[in-house]
Design a protein around this nucleic acid. Structure first.
Lengths: 206, 206
DNA sequence: TAGATTGTTAATCGATTAACAATC
DNA sequence: TAGATTGTTAATCGATTAACAATC
């Protein structure tokens, strides 16, 4: 029932390249063409298609529009999920601008901060509320997902508030490892670790 | 010789929590304590220690300072690596502020852009140069690593310039999958995919 | 000693890659 | 038909987890 993490990552990328490169106007695409677009092997594409139960045709490959629809139904469940961005510093604002309007089923409908100068104003087109009202508003606005861009010093405290408020998925951009209950999905996105990883492996390329 | 990717990621996190939580003043740490700090199992910590050839003592665990030194020598090779940030938009500036000064062996010493208003000025304390001079400057300044935060529309073009200029490691924050030669290390950091992944797995937590 | 801890091998799990039959 | 492509099983690879001997 639950698909592998890596398959979900690739489905996200398949959909994005197909849409941004206007392949939906092309009609059909072969596994090796789709593989080339994100630099993987055709076997991996076919295996993903098998896992999601999507069949191509032998002569023409995969029907692009149908495939996009299928991916929509898997990732978004064809229903809008509301997202909050928590912490409107430099990073938060950049992320908000970046993630906003990238997926019509994922709507960033609120942001939270503790700075009185930001609260009750709009930030990049999204209303900003006090973190003290998170408990109430997350329930009222039916928000399931939080993007966490607060300073590391308050990351744990804020994550606990979010979980108490009913958030079921967190994308953590802070560089503190969080601990969440088993009914909350956590994705860690640690930029410093990523850069240090590049530093390590780059040593072998000289 | 080359350590597994996942081990490198954890080494980066071990070092960071040990330093930020001032464990270097504590002297020694047990595998289960270190495991707790980043929410993994003690077995995994011990296996990583084994892989990097670092031995603890039976009664007291691992000597923190020595462990940090060991991780330094692995990830940074105890030598400074110069880094360039390419693309000084909102995201680029946020990343620059975020990554700056996080690791004394990883120095962001230049940024590149194509906007005349930014070129030849300082940006967040780092000199900004024209992308047209990248070929010359990357060699002159001995830069090995690039953090890519340009708009998706020019990502491929710019990555090719960087590779021609001798960059050996790229941290790609754009949402376009890049293709690099085998002697260049590429780390993809796709925020949209991360958010969509959270959206998918959150559906099972309701 | 008894208990706690490390270091390491074996077993398991998850993901990728290889191989190939089916078929248009 | 011949060639190209899909769908799927088997094999391999990489990473985690379990088990346990050694030892302070």
């Amino acid at each position: 029932m639950v698909l592998p993490e890596k398959t979900i990552e690739r489905l996200s990328k398949y959909r994005r390249v197909l849409i941004t490169l206007n392949y939906d106007q092309k009609g059909y695409i072969y596994s090796h063409e789709l593989a080339n677009l994100i630099h993987i092997t055709p076997e991996q594409v076919r295996r993903d298609m098998m896992l999601i139960g999507y069949n191509g045709t032998l002569r023409r490959g995969y029907e692009v529009n149908k495939l996009i629809e299928k991916i929509n139904s898997i990732i978004d469940g064809n229903t809008v999920q509301n997202v909050a961005l928590v912490g409107i510093g430099n990073l938060g604002r950049a992320m908000l601008n970046y993630l906003k309007d990238k997926n019509r089923y994922l709507k960033i409908i609120a942001c939270f901060d503790n700075d009185q100068n930001k609260i009750d104003k709009m930030c990049c087109g999204v209303p900003c509320y006090s973190i003290n009202d998170a408990g109430k508003l997350i329930k009222e606005l039916n928000i399931n997902i939080a993007v966490l861009t607060v300073p590391t010093t308050v990351a744990i405290e804020v994550s606990e508030i979010l979980i108490k408020s009913g958030i079921k998925g967190i994308l953590n951009f802070t560089t503190i490892p969080l601990k969440v209950p088993s009914n909350v999905y956590l994705e860690e996105y640690d930029m410093i670790t990523s850069l240090e990883k590049v530093a390590y492996f780059t040593q072998f390329n000289k």
